[in-house]
Design a protein around this nucleic acid. Structure first.
Lengths: 199, 199
DNA sequence: GTCTATAAGCGGATAGAC
DNA sequence: GTCTATCCGCTTATAGAC
C-alpha cells in the first residue's frame, strides 16, 4: 500500500490515466509527472517505453478476478443466487463499468493475438454464469440463453446508462435496473431450487 | 452523392477516420490526405481546426434518425412488432455497432453540455420503444422495464459480442441472440395484440 | 479556394552525468 | 536509480503566393 518502488507507482498512475483518457491520449510526460519522476526514469523500468507500460497495465486490468472464489458458491434457490450476483455487481458498479469501458476502447487497437486472452476471460465469465444457472434450470438451452441475455444486459446497462450518463435523466439507478431484470428475465425462474440429479 | 464541395468531403472522411481510430488518434494530415487536399485547406473550411471538424462530425453521427419514420407503424401483434424491430437491428448491425462504440468512446471527453443532445437522443429511442410496447402491454411498469432491458441487452450484445469479437468463439450470431431475447424476455408477451382501449 | 512553406510545440526516446 | 539535456519526427496552425 505504501509507495513501493517507482515501477509500481508508474503502472498505477498509467493505469488511471489510460482509463480516464485512453492510451493514445496519454503522454509519457503525464505519466512521469503523476509519478513524480522524469520520462527518462520510465525507460529505466520499461525499456519498451509506452507500449510496454500499456502491456503491463493490460495484465492488471484483466477481468478474470472479477468474481471472488467465495462468491461462487451456489445457494439453495435461484432467487438467492440472483440476489448475491446482482449485489456483487451493484457494489462494484462505477469502477467495474469504467474498467469495462476502457477494455472496450483499447481492445479495438489490439491485434487478434493480443485480444485473445481478454476474449477468453469474458467468455469464461459467461460460461461460469451458464454453468451456475444450470444448477437450477433444467433446460440447457434456456440456461445458455438466460446467461447470455443477462450478461449482455448488464454490460449494456453499465455502458449505456452508467457510462453514458443516462442514469439521472432516466431515474434508472442500479436497484431499479436489477429489479427490472428480475421481473423481465427471471420472473418465471425465481422459484427454482437447486437440482442434485446428475452429479 | 457526387464530390460536392470539399468541406463536405472533409467531414465524411473525418467521420470515417474518427470512427475507425478515434478523434485523438486521427491527425488532420490524415484527413487532408483522405480528402485529396492539404491541411491548410481544412482551415479554410473549418477555422476552428480539428475541434470544429469534430463538432461537425458529431452532429452527423447523432443517433436520432436511427429508426426511419415508416418503420414506426404498429402491427397487430407484438410478435410482428418484435420481428420488424429486431430485423431492423440485424440489418444495421455492423455499422450501427461501430457508430455506437464511437459515441461511447468520444462522449467521455465531452462536457456535460455537449453530451446532453446525445443523451436526449438515446433516451428518445428508449421512450419510443416504451411507448410502442405500451400499445400491446397493459402494465405500464412492465412496458418500461421490458423496454429498458431490451435496450440495454441489445446495446450490450452489440458492444460485448460484436465489437469485442466474441461472436466467433461463442457462436452467438445476431439470429441466435435475437432468438434468445425472444425466448427470455418476450416469451410470455408474444401473444399480445394491439390494444385500442384508450385513444 | 487551394497550395507551398514554415513556425512553434509536443511526443517518444536516448546518451551521459551524478 | 534518477536526472539533465537533447534529438528527431510529427502535429497543429498560419502567412502569403497563385
Amino acid at each position: 500500500m505504501s509507495k513501493q518502488n517507482l515501477g509500481d507507482t508508474i503502472i498505477r498512475n498509467a493505469a488511471e490515466l489510460f482509463r480516464k483518457q485512453g492510451y493514445k491520449a496519454t503522454s509519457i510526460k503525464q505519466i512521469a509527472n503523476a509519478s513524480d519522476c522524469t520520462t527518462a526514469a520510465l525507460y529505466y523500468y520499461f525499456e519498451g517505453g509506452k507500449a510496454e507500460i500499456l502491456e503491463t497495465v493490460m495484465q492488471r486490468m484483466a477481468p478474470d478476478q472479477l468474481l471472488p472464489e467465495e462468491k461462487r458458491a451456489l445457494p439453495d434457490t435461484l432467487a438467492e443466487f440472483f440476489e448475491i450476483r446482482t449485489n456483487l455487481m451493484k457494489s462494484n458498479m462505477p469502477q467495474l463499468a469504467e474498467r469495462v469501458r476502457w477494455l472496450l476502447m483499447e481492445l479495438a487497437n489490439l491485434s487478434e493475438e493480443d485480444k485473445a486472452p481478454f476474449q477468453r476471460q469474458l467468455l469464461g465469465i459467461q460460461a461460469e454464469m451458464q454453468k451456475s444457472l444450470g444448477a437450477y434450470v433444467e433446460d440447457e438451452t434456456l440456461a445458455r440463453q438466460v446467461s447470455w441475455v443477462m450478461f449482455c444486459s448488464m454490460f449494456g446497462y453499465q455502458q449505456l446508462v452508467v457510462m453514458m450518463g443516462l442514469q439521472d435523466e432516466s431515474g434508472l439507478d442500479p436497484d431499479n435496473y436489477v429489479e427490472a431484470v428480475r421481473n423481465v428475465i427471471f420472473k418465471d425462474l425465481l422459484h427454482l431450487e437447486k437440482r442434485v440429479d446428475h452429479e
